[in-house]
Design a binder for these strands. Structure first.
Lengths: 379, 379
DNA sequence: ACAAGTTGTTTCATGAATTGAAATAAGAGG
DNA sequence: CCTCTTATTTCAATTCATGAAACAACTTGT
């Protein structure tokens, strides 16, 4: 379909936004002649469009952008129950959304998902292009080729050939990825931060996950387990260290996860609702303050360790808006900063971001979009 | 000098060891025709040699190896006082070694180093090829282009154009790198472990440093600060947390560095010698045991965090042989393992390795060797 | 000893990707 | 209307890599 040259152009425009042929020639270090030919192909194929004239000295340049109806992508999140299925355009705009109960038995799960994919594909109207692929985000470990779920505790899956089965049910290319990894890849492609070769993402939910983009590529680790931080021993020597489901004590997850925070609130006789807890803390309720302080401090220490080890240009923390304005975030930030050595003039950017309900599914769609735009070996 | 194709062949043989043309064609996914031509060039240029016949079915294959007299490389370690300067061949074999006092004032330092380089270059006899470049390993931060020392606390340097000055003094290409980074790059090239795309190295000395090879490339971080672990807050809530020179308390360095171990030994009224301390611990001396146990446990926790976050295929810990057989190492390993979640059947390899006196200088020479073998943009 | 089979290496004409230089296009500014 | 500047296209040439076939050098079986 596309040659390597075509993919280089598409991925550049996908990452850096619309630009002229001359810009492309500069960025890609290719001759104007090559760009001219490659762009012509992409225009006739209906993937790019000439979308504006930019006037300066000399002949105006024509900015080239992705056509939003070039192709559509399906993203499926198995991160939580209900399962989310979205259809997006190449910019990550959601064109359609479905929710479904999560089914653990693989075959039944795939059949019900395939039925939704079928329906969504048929529903595409004027605005959307043909579906180019399916991305699936799921908790657990995924094989390096993004086809097989090696192990997922949450789903109870071991060595399930997700891409194979879904592929033969739908006839579309399928890409499977760990949920947090899918999330960061979605951020990378659709997040609108331009081209950041090195950044990390931490997701705070009922569990805690992190993922890293290093040198522009997802870092999956030698065994696909990179980014595990939920069981980092943070409160290890504290006398109050809680036992964790992993068998150790004092894991980050036992203090800072939303589940842990709600649990601590219940134990203290408070409502297990984050908004209420934050409000109580803001009013000065000592137990509420203590719980959020402890959780924020623990996460802050873990973030500091991440920053020291990985040194990302930017750290995106996905956190419930209910917590964002609370003492939790304040303490987290402060604790992180005290434990990060800083060379003068050098600063890492910390970004707080509220997870949207579609975040994981959009990330999953991004997997398919990356394959379409970037080609076979983009990660 | 060499084309990209030539570099691909040289780097493959440098990393994976000698191999036949047909092997190269398989590994590099290039046609036999291309390999044939490229190899011919390298043979006539005296960089490769046909070094053995391997008999199997059919025509025997000719293994191609790097000629050890193809080129020599100079490595300079500013890691500690005395400065070490070595001359190596492309296999990392040390052909000559010089020691010099470390001079802080940049210009004087460069002049004295350049004089040694001059002398070493003249001394090369039969065995060695022409000097192809100089690598410099130094504590502190280095610019992304490996030319400028941005900041080095140990040397007191800020924005010193090391490569520029040394280059004009010697007329050779110069590459500067952080000392721990140079060490891991040396391990990668000369370590004899073949081709490991993902591994990490921790150096335990008076300070503690780590470095990571990710996807076959050094991970330097967005600000060149990746791998910092000396100030990871490990013993953070312990009542015995010691103040650290960084201003915080409970940093890894305050417990596990050799300096800290020796300091703790002195405080306990013991000799500040690692071998003696290990021996005492082996005899059951309670203070010695406590000191080594505490240090080993702290490092073990830090290693666990590293493994969880990065998930390397292999973790090389460079540690004094005096400690290697002691309770320190035993506790370190055990503590690390209890805090690493393991998926069944998946194992990370922990390698203990004694630092040689030339380790840093050899790593530095490796910088120049990589440039020679791999071409401009290898990291 | 000889033929057949297997694998490694080289040769050569071909094709694809990319390029530099020149030509052309489309504006701004006088 | 002319000149200057910058963007884009055209075109012939070059570089790079390739597939197929030839050639080489061994092992194995008879």
């Amino acid at each position: 379909m596309f040659s390597a040259g075509h993919h280089r152009i598409l991925s550049t425009i996908g990452r850096l936004g619309p630009m002229s042929r001359t810009d492309l020639s500069r960025v890609l270090a290719l001759s104007k002649a090559s760009i001219s030919m490659l762009v012509r192909d992409l225009l006739t194929q209906g993937v790019l469009r000439e979308q504006a004239l930019v006037f300066g000295q000399g002949r105006p340049s024509v900015t080239l952008g992705l056509r939003s109806d070039a192709a559509s992508f399906i993203g499926i999140s198995l991160h939580a129950d209900p399962v989310t299925i979205v259809l997006t355009d190449p910019y990550g705009e959601v064109l359609a959304r479905h929710l479904q109960p999560r089914i653990s038995e693989p075959e039944a799960c795939f059949r019900s998902l395939a039925a939704v994919v079928e329906a969504v594909t048929r529903e595409i109207g004027e605005g959307g292009g043909p579906v180019a692929g399916i991305g699936i985000a799921q908790p657990g470990f995924v094989s390096r080729d993004r086809r097989v779920c090696l192990a997922s505790a949450a789903l109870g899956w071991v060595d399930v050939d997700v891409a194979g089965r879904m592929g033969s049910l739908t006839g579309l290319p399928v890409f499977v990825e760990n949920d947090t990894n899918a999330l960061i890849l979605g951020e990378q492609l659709f997040g609108g931060f331009g081209d950041r070769p090195d950044f990390s993402l931490v997701f705070l939910g009922d569990g805690i996950g992190s993922a890293h983009i290093i040198g522009g590529r997802l870092h999956r680790g030698a065994h696909g387990g990179a980014g595990e931080m939920a069981h980092s021993p943070i409160a290890i020597d504290s006398h109050a260290a809680l036992p964790c489901r992993c068998g150790n004590k004092g894991c980050l997850e036992t203090v800072a996860s939303l589940r842990a925070i709600r649990g601590a609130a219940r134990q203290a006789g408070l409502e297990d609702d984050l908004a209420l807890l934050s409000a109580r803390a803001a009013d000065g309720h000592p137990d509420a303050l203590a719980i959020l302080h402890r959780a924020g401090a623990a996460l802050g220490v873990a973030l500091a360790q991440l920053v020291q080890m990985i040194d990302p240009a930017q750290l995106v923390v996905m956190i419930e808006p209910d917590l964002e304005q609370s003492v939790f975030t304040r303490v987290m930030r402060q604790e992180m900063e005290t434990h990060v050595l800083r060379r003068s003039g050098v600063q890492m950017e910390l970004v707080l971001r509220a997870p949207e309900p579609d975040s994981f599914a959009k990330g999953a769609a991004g997997l398919a979009a990356k394959h379409y735009l970037f080609g076979e070996d983009w990660a």
